[in-house]
Design a protein around this nucleic acid. Structure first.
Lengths: 190, 190
DNA sequence: CGCGACGTTGATTTGCCTCAACGATTGTGG
DNA sequence: CCACAATCGTTGAGGCAAATCAACGTCGCG
C-alpha cells in the first residue's frame, strides 16, 4: 500500500530494495477518518505526513471565528508545519483530513535517523522542497497580480478535478476571497 | 571574504577545513554594482546566489508596465529562481542588485558535483529550504489575513532597519499595495 | 422530519487603486 | 558647481473590486 511513497521517491532519486525496506520500517501507516486532526493549534508538530489516499488541509483559525486554508495536500503530497517542527514551538495551524484518508507518518526524529541510514533521502527532500518553495512563490505572485476571478479561473484550469473535490467555501478560503464572491464568479459564466 | 558563507553553513551542519576548501574552490565570488541583473526574464536561471554584502530583489514585469517584487535577499540569504533552474525553462523573473553587492555564485551543475563530494551539504540546503518555505507560507498568511496597513506595521516591526534600506515603492510592491497607499499609511501615525 | 451545513443572490459598504498635480531629493552633463 | 531632468515621495478626488450583512433555497443526514 505505501508503494506510492516508494514510487514517488523513485521519481527523484534511486534507491534499492534494501533501502526501501529500511524506509518502510521507519514510517507508520494509518487510516484516518474525515475531520480527524493530525495537528491542532497549540501543539508542536512532530511529523511529516505523506498522503497515500485522500485529502488534507492546513489552516489557521482567525480571531473573527473564520478560518483560512494555507495548504491543501492530496495523493503524493507531503504536508507539515515546518516552522513548528524546526523550532519545537507550538503551531499556529491545524492539519485536518477533508476526506477519509490513508497517511504515512514520518516522525521528525525518525527522519533524522533515516537520513543517517540513507543519506540520499536528503536529496529527495531537498528537491521536493525546492518544488514546494517555487510553488509558494508562484502562489504569492498570483495573489499579488491577479484578481479574484482570474485566480479562480486559473486554479480551475490547472486542477479541474480538485475543484470538484472540495467544498466551495474551502476553495474560496484558499484562494483568498469569500464564498459569496466565488459563488458570484461561478454564476457569471452562464 | 566568503567567510560568512562558511559561517552560515556551520550554523546548520558541521564541516571540516578540507571540506571548506573544496566548497570555496567550487564557487565564484563577484562584486556587482547596483542595478546589475543576475537574471533577466527569458533567460534560464543557472545559479544560486548567496549575498555576502548588499541587497538583491527578485521581481517580475507586469503587462501594465509596473513590476512586482516577490523576494528580497540581504546578507546571508540565498536567492534564485528554482522553477527555471529545475526545469531548465526560461524564467519569468528578474534578479537585480538594489545596492552594490558582493555575491557568491553557485552554478547548478557545480552544485550537484559538490553534493557528491560533500553529501552533508544536501542537509544544509534542505534545512534552509524548509525555513524559506515556512517563511513563504507565513507571507501568504499575512497576505490573506491582514490589511495593507497591518502588513506594513508588522513588517516594520520585524525589519525596522531593512525598511530604511530600500525605496518605499519597492516595499510597497513587496507588501502588495501601491506606493501612494504606503505613503498615506506612514503619514497617519503622526 | 427537521436541523445544520452549504450555496446563492442582492443591497450596501469599504479598503485600496487610479489618476493627477505637486514638492523634495538625487544625479548627471555642461 | 550649478542647472535641469529624472526619480521618488506626498496629497487629494473619485472610482471600483470585493467584503459584509442579510435573507433565502437546498441538500444530506441523524
Amino acid at each position: 500500500m505505501p508503494d506510492s511513497l516508494i514510487n514517488h521517491i523513485k521519481r527523484f532519486i534511486e534507491i534499492n530494495e534494501e533501502q526501501e525496506k529500511i524506509l518502510l520500517s521507519f514510517v507508520e501507516y494509518k487510516k484516518i477518518n474525515k475531520k480527524t486532526f493530525l495537528l491542532k493549534e497549540g501543539q508542536v508538530c512532530e511529523n511529516n505526513y505523506f498522503i497515500l489516499k485522500g485529502c488534507l488541509r492546513l489552516f489557521l483559525n482567525l480571531d473573527s471565528g473564520y478560518e483560512h486554508i494555507l495548504q491543501f495536500a492530496i495523493e503524493n503530497w507531503w504536508i507539515t508545519d515546518f516552522l513548528s517542527m524546526q523550532n519545537g514551538t507550538p503551531s499556529k495551524f491545524n492539519i485536518q483530513a477533508i476526506e477519509n484518508s490513508e497517511i504515512i507518518f514520518l516522525n521528525k526524529n525518525i527522519k533524522n535517523e533515516l537520513f543517517e541510514r540513507i543519506p540520499k533521502l536528503e536529496s529527495y527532500f531537498r528537491i521536493i522542497l525546492e518544488k514546494a518553495y517555487s510553488a509558494a512563490i508562484m502562489r504569492i505572485h498570483f495573489q499579488l497580480d491577479y484578481s479574484g476571478e482570474e485566480r479562480f479561473m486559473h486554479f480551475n484550469r490547472l486542477f479541474p478535478d480538485f475543484v470538484q473535490r472540495v467544498p466551495q467555501y474551502m476553495l474560496a478560503s484558499y484562494l483568498g476571497f469569500t464564498p459569496e464572491f466565488l459563488s458570484k464568479v461561478r454564476g457569471k459564466k452562464h
